[in-house]
Design a protein around this nucleic acid. Structure first.
Lengths: 100, 100
DNA sequence: ATAATACTTCGATATTTGTCAAAATGTAGA
DNA sequence: TCTACATTTTGACAAATATCGAAGTATTAT
């Protein structure tokens, strides 16, 4: 994994509102009960964020572009799910703890 | 850990040159042989980065500010070491893999 | 005391970023 | 088809950021 790609992943998580958005998607991904497993309807979480729809759309594109989420249109709605692979790459990088 | 604090950590790693700087510090921290364990003399790595000293100084402050490194003046030189605690917090956050 | 080295601060600047309102697009339902 | 709803695109703008050169500070060596 190139540092450029890695930096892009971290950049996608570097804005508070975007991170919050990502966390909401994560949260929905964990509760696999009501909806189909591991999916998050953006329309369901948009009100819990303190930014407008255009900004959410923009942030989603950045998260998607960094490979952190995968989005898919489901009729009128947009569905997002976590891309665990990317998450693991970033986690592994940070987890390479030094000095012990 | 607040999302604001977490976002700050990721922001510190979001710039390619700053990430590269952080990686160099990590690398030096791993090789505990020649120098005292877990330390990195900035003067030894500054030439391997493609940015000037003022910018390095600025980036170091951001990494330090995010709690990712701890710096200390050793006479004429500046020494940096990884703050494993912060690294683990961020890693744990990303490691909270969904859907499995 | 002077000079050299290592780093920091300051001031400037070009670029990137986050955000919004307004308009556009896509989709489903009446 | 007309309307309502969900999302995206566009255009704009203020704020943040990355970077540099020049000047400043601290420390060591001569």
């Amino acid at each position: 994994m190139s540092t450029l790609k890695l930096a892009k992943i971290f950049k996608a998580l570097s804005n508070e509102n975007r991170l919050e958005l990502f966390l909401e998607i994560m949260k929905k991904n964990e509760t696999c009960f009501e909806t189909e497993c591991g999916e998050c309807f953006i329309t369901d979480i948009i009100d819990s964020l303190n930014i407008g729809a255009p900004t959410v759309s923009h942030h989603l594109k950045e998260l998607s572009n960094a490979g952190l989420i995968i989005t898919e249109r489901r009729g009128k709605f947009l569905v997002a799910r976590i891309n665990a692979e990317t998450l693991e790459v970033a986690s592994a990088f940070l987890g390479a703890k030094p000095g012990q």
